[in-house]
Design a protein around this nucleic acid. Sequence first.
RNA 1: GCAGGAAUGGCGGAACUGGUAUACGCGUCAGAUUUAGAAUCUGAAUUUUGAGAGUUCGAAUCUCUCUUCCUGUACCA
Length: 940
Amino acid sequence: MQYNHQEIEKKWQEYWAKNQTFKASNTSDKPKYYVLDMFPYPSGAGLHVGHPLGYIASDIYARYKRHKGFNVLHPQGYDSFGLPAEQYAIQTGQHPAITTETNIKTYRGQLDKIGFSFDWSREVRTSNPEYYKWTQWIFIQLFNSWYNKDSDKAEDVSTLIAKFEAEGNTTVNAVCDEDIITFTADEWNGFSSTKQQEILLQYRLTFLSDTEVNWCPALGTVLANDEIVNGVSERGGHPVVRKKMTQWSMRISAYAQRLLDGLNGIDWPQPLKDIQTNWIGRSQGAMVSFKVDGNDANIDVFTTRPDTIYGVSFMTLAPEHELVAKITTDAQREAVETYVEATAKRSERDRMADVKTISGVFTGAYAIHPFSGKQVPIWIGDYVLASYGTGAVMAVPCGDQRDYDFAKHFDLEIPNIFEGVDISEEAFADKEKSVIANSDFLNGLPYKKAMKTVIYEMEQRGFGYGKINYRLRDAVFSRQRYWGEPFPVYYKDGMPQMIEKQHLPVVLPEVEKYLPTEDGKPPLGNADVWAWDTTTNTVVSNDKIDNETVFPLELNTMPGWAGSSWYFNRYMDATNDGDFVSAAAVEYWKEVDLYIGGSEHATGHLLYARFWQKFLFDLGLVPVDEFAKKLINQGMILGTSAIVYRVAGTNKYVSLGLKDNYKADELQELRVDVKLINSSDELNLEGLKNWQPQYADAEFELEDGKYIVGREVEKMSKRWFNVVNPDDICEEYGADSLRLFEMFLGPLEQFKPWKTSGISGVYSFLKKLWKLFHNGENFEVSEGEPTKDNLKTLHKTIKKVEEDIENFSFNTSVSTFMIAVNELTAQKCNNKAILEELLILVSPYAPHIAEELWSELGHENSIAFAAFPQFDGKHLIESEKEYPISFNGKMRFKLKLPLDMSKEDIEKTVMAHEKTQEQLQGRTPKKVIIVPGKIINIVG
RNA sequence: GCAGGAAUGGCGGAACUGGUAUACGCGUCAGAUUUAGAAUCUGAAUUUUGAGAGUUCGAAUCUCUCUUCCUGUACCA
């Protein structure tokens, strides 16, 4: 019987589906283990061979854990809200739900062919109302919460209202909006309901605010920073302007410190932790308030170097700073206004890209130095960003290079407040080495002491205090799009009202057009039936809006990261209709033990999901405040494009080896379909002619009768014609080969190129494995005692494979299998006991062939739960060692010696050996190093 | 600019706490089988780990200097 992968794989995939082999139970005597992949967005293009890399790795680990006796949860689903389906709807009118459904079918078909051990009974789709009902519900929980800094956690707003009613807000220590008015209990109780709601909104964890956003008029939507390239939209290249809009935001900044601290307790890749740490951007310093001379305004600045306060020789405000207009003197007004206008025209992008040009203008006003009482001029300059800190800086030119450059450029004073430092050329920014001088009570103090002293002094005098600042901004949560979760929100008197839990989900309405409305409202503005009737608690026609009992619903939808911020919890109890996840299920599974996915989500999904998890933890809804214990970033599989060289202006193509006969500018590089290339980089000329009309009458300049293409490693993409579809690989070589090969390519985390030709190696490995169980056409294994060599090979393999899987070194375990099969073939081993254990080792990697041979061996049940072989070191004990004999560190020959031989005897035997004498040529060695069991080195 | 990572045959990559460098696979070449090809089997070659120094009996591995490449991030006060 020949190894027929197509037949076998189909058979076992059907078996697993029919028997629900991988369905996980929420109760078990076994210990639990939760293995999760980042769920895919089902795009129209389907999967290419790069996509399943991480899924294969996690599947191997999940299967391994089952063999090790764990109750494994290994689910999969779809992050099915997203822009591509909506764009397609705009172009064709096809409802995104239909596009999404079609794409999911394609994905599912492709995934099934690879033989994953997913528990599909727990599938989630973020665009299903049964799912987004709970996304809406979590949103409501956020709305109903505020962040209490005293207890350092989120609490229900009822506790906040209680405080307001009893004491007003002066004693409340909350993370909230900046421009909060203070009020007493009496005042609070006297406020109108609308006023109270307005105030509460400033404290809620999700809140409405006027935010500056990147508005793209052509697309009719707000864009995130990473959706803008060179000042225009990534999609379509349309201009983008800054615009103030009322948007929902998430108060993630409340969790900045906990998001930072939490990183210490989780096993995530260091680079990823670094990215998040950087993104959160904690900096310790002080807030200092400067009075403006002859004006009642105060300029607040944040600084990380309050110790250098005596070095302040001017101040700089961002051009957008709200005090600019107020403090500018008449004499300077025109210059200032011109400058402000000029900077407003420049996009954020331009300003950031252009860091060398120094520009600014004097406002004519002066601030009073809080310690020295001296006048310091106030400038505006675009090197100060409105969005960071307070949008104003105290400039210390001697200690900050940007302030230094600014001062030099405008010929401002540069006082030196460092002991023994030359600042004639550049600023001195090395704080650890600085000792303060010319600074009154700070003289002679090193950085740390000066910091403490000055902050204490400022707090005493009341114009400053120590502060920790974060770069992390609150996250805008509104999108002007159709294909996303609708908010469970209607508006009464302009104030947002939440729809109660029992009336969820609020289902996405039907619209005629998926574009924004003509008057600039989001796509949901096109819906005719999009109003909330508070008497029936249903969505009703807009005609009925009377603002008495029927109110307009929110027109924005939630961003892509909403649904993915909690899906890992939903898998634990995916069909629960009464709760987002049952307490019992989440108590049992707790958190993801192993999460595999790309590092590109470092500052998006992975940060937001941690935030929501901490929030849910504060509310007591989940038992742990980090959702994933261990995370691995898989690398990308790159394509290997094929390049032909056309002689410019002709239809003649030159083979790779002959292109040096032409000048570089005479040749054009064109990419051709990688399917037309064989394993030796030779182009199929007939195939090319049929591929695209432009090649139909092409001429070729061949070398040795062949056309050899150039190769280039780059991302897999349709436009490079280098995409390889896993379906084709499964068809030709089988899923087991695909799985083994993807792992064999190299370390999981690394980026590596795909070359289909390499797959023949793992394919012939599978055929060799098959042969071990067969004699010609017949299945044949022997029952007797295994030989010593058989056992040695097996146990060596058990040990290595187990270590490799535990270390996620899947590439090396594939080579270990190859070595094992090669050795057993050489030993002519067909011993049942040996082969049975070998099969279990192989089965996480190549489950189909393993199941088939396992059943041939007479087993009735799936191999999936067979106990992992037990390693026994006694089979590896050697009595002899083939020592490498080195001379001055270079290995010259080998010598077999007993392992229990004493050092003295080894030395005698080695020195007496004829080859030693040959090497020494009569010299007497200076030294002989003997490391028993390892090496012998003769020096001299 | 700052932070992090990497560099090993023609290619992808092995090498555990310093101890036989290139395991395993692809490709290449030669041979066997075959009408031919594919497939299969047998055998072979590539030369010192980016460069330079240091520590050591011994360095891909540890230390220093430099080069190149990749990733992230950037007037963050």
